[in-house]
Nucleic acid binder design. Structure first.
Lengths: 165, 165
DNA sequence: GTTATTGCAAATGATTTGCACAAGG
DNA sequence: CCTTGTGCAAATCATTTGCAATAAC
């Protein structure tokens, strides 16, 4: 899987007359080292943690490249920075449920939702290309049991959902 | 309707011990002078066009107030600035269809979509608070007839959809 | 008179860019 | 070699904020 990603990137670079560099490979590896959402800044940390640092500028530039190569997708969780989703080759749809209590973000798919949206779009005279659903919700666990396993982690990472800053 | 909005704002201000100022009233009027989406910057222009200018800072501050008072809603169309939606008191749902050809943004509702999303959310153990659906689509009119009435207007306003800047 | 509000200009924070140097092919 | 890539620091750009002057109540 790892090698496959590398091959896809290489093919993309070749096709565009771009070069294979150590930085790009190192960023690719960092991007897919977990299959969680991340921000550019989080990725910078992850990359920097490995021996030599890569400049923030290069990280941003490579991220744009990976998006263009369709290895990565940009998503918008409603806060101030762009989030990247490394885990979408397997998941065609990109619906997000964001918990306003604990900050947890759940990615889910639902064929019914896709179908329905396609219908509505056609009815309006368009043809759907891609769709993203964002649901803000509250944590049942927190309400019912008075606690939620994700709450602490969310607080620690300072991940907020509203644009309240 | 106009007076009703003013009353709602006043009630909100009173409840919070805040003050009624000319700026706030003037911004309120500008906000609801059209029922189209707008950005903070567009609103600044609209306000400035009337005689005396109001500082950008005040516009931003008042916008935040109106959102808090639930007279206005923030939406995210996927570009770099926050968009405000003055037209949601009548429209409970906020689903957007964005045409990647002509830039047109259509706001629509669909009870089926709402219901379905609520089901999915519950199944995941959460309770939906609000949801927004964004569908990127292509213009049937452009494909079939080779032209689209919105295309020119969209180009003129420079309204782009991708984060390409 | 207090306390909230405004306008200005400076600060912020994520992202981008110009440029000189380094490195792929 | 020639062109693309990198790192740095400076530049953007929307938005926020500190502060002194001003206006509600």
């Amino acid at each position: 899987m790892e090698a496959q990603l590398k091959e896809r990137l290489d093919a993309f670079l070749r096709g565009k007359g771009l070069r294979r560099t150590e930085q790009r490979e190192r960023i690719l590896k960092a991007v897919f080292s977990k299959d969680e959402h991340f921000t550019a800044d989080e990725l910078c940390d992850r990359v920097r943690r490995s021996d030599s640092g890569i400049s923030r500028a290069t990280v941003y530039r490579t991220l744009a490249l990976l998006v263009e190569a369709e290895l990565l997708r940009e998503i918008d969780l409603g806060d101030q920075h762009t989030t990247y989703d490394p885990n979408f080759l397997e998941k065609p749809s990109h619906n997000h449920l964001v918990c306003i209590d604990c900050g947890k973000v759940i990615e889910f798919e639902d064929a019914h939702i896709d179908t329905l949206n396609d219908c509505v779009t056609r009815r309006l005279g368009f043809r759907a290309v891609k769709q993203s659903l964002r649901i803000e919700a509250t944590c049942e666990q927190l309400r019912k049991r008075g606690r939620c396993p994700n709450l602490i982690a969310a607080r620690l990472t300072g991940r907020r959902l509203r644009r309240k800053r």
